[in-house]
């Protein structure tokens, strides 16, 4: 019986969110006495790193599954979960993780929950906490099937290290997909928004796309990702992929800095799980100040240069 963690390997590195999932699985295993198995479907494998972050064992697929596709990868992962007699399968709630998780759950006839935000509660049945209503609330859900699949939201569990090594086993699982990947455009050198620990976000108060240089400079200096409000993406100032809020992305960084965003209920929904929120707005009545930990009532064009200078 084991806890399986699906390890995402992309652009030559293990995803931070996969190491978080691994750390959570190991912490859970300490109380349930289960073994943590890290399953990696692609790329070269470094069992030392995975062992340090909590894996007892690494199961690496030696055959090439080709480009990521939810159907073929889902079949392969499900097969490897069966090989290790998985009881709980933990996948990051990333774009690829979330497309994979339901396919794996179907193959394993498993109950599943996505958007999981903390470690499962196992003292009385198996319950997990997930975010609902786009971050406006949380729900506890009970899973009762023999195998359970969870999609864990990035930044929900801190990465931990153990002074141990993992055993490595290579297997050959193949599966094919009818999905043909034609081209991939990655935005290079940028921190993915859903995984970022710090996010600097701009709203209508930035007055136009030509002023985004300041948001980007501050973000670069803080090692942050950039985001925006709905009107900004609707007006085409920024791509929709940066839109956080109820109909955009829900994020959970340690620090969220909102510049020139009033804080409509739909926007707050997407960011209210952030650990620390800073609101910068000209309007002292802006609702964001009620949801923020720190606030500056002032003009973005006066405040931002000072922040850029101070964070150099």
């Amino acid at each position: 019986m084991s806890l399986v963690v699906f390890i995402e390997f992309a652009d030559g590195v293990y995803k931070k969110s996969s190491l978080e999932a691994l750390s959570m699985a190991r912490s859970l295993a300490e109380s349930t006495q289960q073994k943590v198995v890290a399953v990696q479907l692609n790329g070269p494998c470094d069992s030392q790193i995975l062992g340090q972050h909590g894996a007892h064992k690494v199961l690496h697929n030696g055959s090439d599954l080709g480009a990521f596709a939810a159907d073929s990868w889902g079949k392969a992962l499900a097969q490897m979960c069966q090989e290790t007699q998985a009881e709980v399968v933990i996948i990051s709630n990333t774009y690829s993780g979330k497309s994979l998780a339901p396919r794996v759950a179907h193959e394993l006839k498993a109950d599943m929950a996505s958007q999981v935000v903390s470690m499962p509660e196992t003292s009385n049945g198996f319950r997990v906490k997930r975010s609902v209503f786009s971050g406006k609330a949380f729900a506890w859900v009970q899973l009762t099937s023999p195998i359970k699949v969870l999609a864990l939201t990035p930044n929900s569990f801190p990465i931990q290290t153990w002074n141990e090594s993992a055993s490595l086993e290579t297997t050959q699982v193949s599966a094919s997909s009818t999905i043909q990947v034609e081209s991939v455009q990655k935005v290079s050198g940028k921190i993915p928004l859903t995984e970022a620990e710090i996010v600097v976000s701009g709203g209508r108060g930035m007055k136009g796309p030509e002023h985004w240089g300041m948001i980007e400079t501050l973000a670069n200096q803080l090692g942050a990702a950039t985001a925006c409000s709905k009107p900004v993406s609707d007006m085409g100032w920024r791509p929709h992929s940066e839109h956080v809020g109820q109909t955009g992305i829900t994020i959970k960084p340690n620090l969220y800095i909102a510049v020139g965003i009033s804080g409509a209920i739909q926007h707050l929904a997407g960011v209210s799980s952030s650990k620390v929120i800073v609101a910068i707005n000209k309007d002292p009545e802006a609702p964001f100040f009620k949801a923020a930990d720190y606030g500056i009532v002032g003009d973005a064009f006066e405040v931002l240069p000072q922040l850029i200078e101070a964070s150099k």
Binding site: D11, A69, V184
Partner: peptide
């Protein structure tokens, strides 16, 4: 996709 877009 995570960190970009793809055509399929």
């Amino acid at each position: 996709i995570d960190g970009g877009k793809e055509s399929v």
